[in-house]
Write a protein that binds this DNA or RNA. Sequence first.
DNA 1: GTCTACGGTTGCGCAATGAGCAACGCGGCC
DNA 2: GGCCGCGTTGCTCATTGCGCAACCGTAGAC
Lengths: 258, 258
Amino acid sequence: MSNAATETANGVQSVDRALRILEILARSGESGVTEIAASLEVHKSTAFRLVATLEQHGLVEQVEGRGKYRLGVGLLRLAGATSARLDVVQEARPLCKQLAAATGETVNLATLSGHSALYLDQVAGPSALQPHNWVGQHIPLHATSNGKVLMAWLEEAELKDLLGRLPSYTGLTITSKAALRKQLEVVREQGYAVAVDELEVGLTAIATPVRNAHGDVICSMSVSGPTFRLPPDRVDEVLPLLIEAADELSHRLGWGMR
Amino acid sequence: MSNAATETANGVQSVDRALRILEILARSGESGVTEIAASLEVHKSTAFRLVATLEQHGLVEQVEGRGKYRLGVGLLRLAGATSARLDVVQEARPLCKQLAAATGETVNLATLSGHSALYLDQVAGPSALQPHNWVGQHIPLHATSNGKVLMAWLEEAELKDLLGRLPSYTGLTITSKAALRKQLEVVREQGYAVAVDELEVGLTAIATPVRNAHGDVICSMSVSGPTFRLPPDRVDEVLPLLIEAADELSHRLGWGMR
DNA sequence: GTCTACGGTTGCGCAATGAGCAACGCGGCC
DNA sequence: GGCCGCGTTGCTCATTGCGCAACCGTAGAC
């Protein structure tokens, strides 16, 4: 009967709508009820009730009494519980902390998710405030050291699927497929990837693979910081520390035990 | 105040149930459909359909084909969008204000920065005796309640790096590393730190830790005032208020639930 | 200062939709 | 092999969630 427009295979309608509201808010940052209702193609009141229910659970909150809605802190609690059960993150946390302390820079853990890199965890260096929290964000693969590492050990078929458009973010972003493939070759050979000013001018990052018991690359660990603090010779200093930490993590996940 | 307890208030029933499933999974780590249905006091099939809808949006995932369900990485993505705009100071402000009003003393928020404590925010109490504004100032760690809290939960390596010279400011300043370590032990045990006349004669302060979703101590909240207004018995009165405020802040930042 | 418009909020009644039931397939365990 | 427990699915009914329309703030224009 209901040959709905988009993918509405099955599922509970109102729940589906509620979850779409969360996604809308994630994308827009802030939205009003009317705006949400328009996006969902439902009546204002329907959208309002859904939002109200989400609000009761702390997943959304309204900004300043009367006004728009945005995602709430309840999500942080849920996400905390999520990453707590991801054994990789759990296992990695002390290592990341130690690495962050040793290098003074920010350490990230990223994995492949869809067509981009999903940042699983972040430990900031001793600098006062967290630079920019990337946890949960999807970051383009071709412009980051993490992304290069995650792609480098993929099967040809999977890789091909990921290499779509390669948008440019700075003058140094790799935008040609051939050049990227060549890069990945280098990454595979040397066992790590570097990205200098490729995603953002002034941002340098180094990444290495983390393997599970089967030897699959399941995520990548990176150290990143402002380019002026991470010139080539400093990168050479940090690299062994990063590799040591990532190898230790792989080891704890069963890699190399046989 | 504390959510989750009050149910069946109003809102969209199916959405409410779906969100409760998320909370159940956050608490249990993994649950089967039958188990969830029992918790919700609904039929198995109902629980299944709700879970299936959550799964379509990546908020839950089933472990290994046939089996139990757990929270999914989609939550990390949503949480990423949340924490992108999340600012500790901003989140803390109303709580600090309330605490300042309740205690009549000055409330501060401090974090670790290099080798000292950086004061992020300050809300003065209504008293006539206004202390000078510490926001943006770097204050020695070993002579303040905030500093002790910030050090108490550090890794040994990081702590070692911080314990250099311990200059004396008053007759009561802790200047021996052994004594300081002992003090930190106490702080860890009792969950708060006190400093009386250690930085300045006539200045008393109490501080408690604020944690993020991972449980890391990211900053400390303190109440401070002239020692004559904060004798030991008054400290005992203020303490629960401070702890409540700091815990609430931690809660808003995602701590708890595990 | 008044008027208008816009956005969030709420009571009401109908029917769409989500919940319960029961049956099924599939493992694991006696 | 048979039993039991699990997740999963078709069917049916009435619960419940939806659309409507009216309400009530605030904000901006004239």
